[in-house]
Design a protein around this nucleic acid. Sequence first.
DNA 1: GGTCATATGTGTAACGATACACAAGCCGCT
DNA 2: AGCGGCTTGTGTATCGTTACACATATGACC
Lengths: 349, 349
Amino acid sequence: MNSSAGSKRVTLAQVAEQAGVSVMTASYTYNQPDRVSEQARSKVLAAASQLGYAGPDPSARSLRRGSTRTLGVVMGEHLSYAFEDPEAVSFLAGIADVCADRGYGMTILPITGAADDVPRITAAAVDGFIVWTTSDDDPVLAAVRAMKRPAVVHGGPAVRGMELVSIDNRAAARAVGAVAFAGAGRPAVVSFPLSRARISTITSGGDITEVLFPVTRERLEGYRQAAEGAGIAWRDVVIAVCARNDAAEAERVAATLLASAEPPDAIAAMSDQQAAGVVHAARAAGRAIPDDLAVTGWDDAAVAERLGLTTVAQSLREQGAACAHAALGEKPNAQTASWSIVRRGSTRQ
Amino acid sequence: MNSSAGSKRVTLAQVAEQAGVSVMTASYTYNQPDRVSEQARSKVLAAASQLGYAGPDPSARSLRRGSTRTLGVVMGEHLSYAFEDPEAVSFLAGIADVCADRGYGMTILPITGAADDVPRITAAAVDGFIVWTTSDDDPVLAAVRAMKRPAVVHGGPAVRGMELVSIDNRAAARAVGAVAFAGAGRPAVVSFPLSRARISTITSGGDITEVLFPVTRERLEGYRQAAEGAGIAWRDVVIAVCARNDAAEAERVAATLLASAEPPDAIAAMSDQQAAGVVHAARAAGRAIPDDLAVTGWDDAAVAERLGLTTVAQSLREQGAACAHAALGEKPNAQTASWSIVRRGSTRQ
DNA sequence: GGTCATATGTGTAACGATACACAAGCCGCT
DNA sequence: AGCGGCTTGTGTATCGTTACACATATGACC
């Protein structure tokens, strides 16, 4: 109990000497206690607490063992955005569940989007990587792959040599879009950013294949198929791009749409937060949901139930757990996650 | 560009040999590029990409340098709760800001509350620790201190040898309690858990000093002083304990309180989420706010503005940043964070 | 008593990188 | 010519730990 205030770091060798045993006996005391006699073990522990030794140095141990017992999570957005997005947060919780179970730590790798985040990846002491949805051309992907450790991408893009955990975004968008656009004459979409430059705009008829974010691209393709299935040309579908994934931004762009000469009568969003913003804008504009305006969200978050939103249900928590398993090098049970449509009162069907 | 598929890990020595330079020249190429000639540098980089060398091994580098360039964040609650609490999340964002700026990673240490989380602390390869609010007797605190690295506690408890970043919870509670209880005859409190066993109960007149969580204890003491300042004995103040910090739980206990024979006419909560739950319960019970029931929250979250809640404003983001600075060993500008009362329509004053 | 298996202890050689001290070459300056 | 300073390159020791192979003691069993 009596810690002598040595300012220098205490080593296992010193503990062993103090205890009168070999270094290996001391090492085994920490790593395979059964390998050592009760007597030796207590001598080592006594010496350790006398010297104030807190246990084997993590870096040295990692070097020797070749494993850090830590997973790295790369968030493509600026970190604060990531934490503000409730779905990203439940994804993280899913990873945390698995890490806690396996005794692993999880390192969040703050990616700013600047050039200096590649070295940050390279310097990360982790056994495996999990990359949160990013763009096709994100240099971070190459950096992660170069690390030659188990790696998973959530959402997309698909990268050779890395696992992919995702739902079929196109199919889900087609399905929820069909519900949203049923009986509508002027459907619109509230979308995540289309390019790395995150600006809010209103557009239509653009070339979907040029969208750099695979999740966004696939959802747009699904919405396109849904619109065409309802007999509406894609160039007539207005796309409101939100710079950020939150209710406030969506409310703003939805208000603009609703105030236009030919306001939409159906809006499919890409998250429940966005859909919530649309609902608020509709109320403010005096529109009845779903009669004047059908609205759909995505994710089946708490707010979707509260507002009665038709939405795409998926478990980001389970997907986070699946990513963690893959990043640990365990064979994943199912690479493609499941989803379903939850119909509530915000749509005509 | 041509990566020869060696299954064994490539070392700096191999790169140096391939490039025809010494190991140190190769090392400097990565760490102090200006220290080597343009010519040597390009030879090294060419050899590296030919061999598929991704950069110096992080564990070896950490061992040799004595620094991991990573901060450890210990969350006292089960991780998923932590991520679900928006204030904890903005605290994390504050840490992330500083880490991103310094090129540091942040490791989240999943603490389950079981006995096996002490070894997890000991095994963490980090330069400094940040501990999110916990109880006085949490064994994790001793484990962190034993690591002999810069360490900070947010909220409490105060531990010798560790920094403390916190607002003055007692003073803030006294101030907001005074506003909440002004003109009230039967004040009540909606509280965080009083003990490690997280159960929802309704109590009153208990011994505050026995509460193990310092943040909760100090706020209760402040509320007590506010009640007594309004001429009400503490034993007459009902305390509704919520097992979890969310709106749903608070709504449930508030509904119970409001349905009782002597319902409260003022409720001071410990978070805006809780206060939001109270507001919903009050609406459901047909009470007018603030006339029938005054309500106060804590944190000045987005929901507080939306509902017009009187609350205690503090910046957890700034406090997170302050913790990060302290954990990096930088002298903190101010250990005690600032707070203020934001008066909105939910109180009589 | 002899044989074999099990329990316990030890020494040495890595793991992959960087700090440090030193050496050699080159320049300009007096 | 001689000196000092700057740039660039190198060898060696070391960071703290654990894998591995080997040595010794103990007990069980026929």
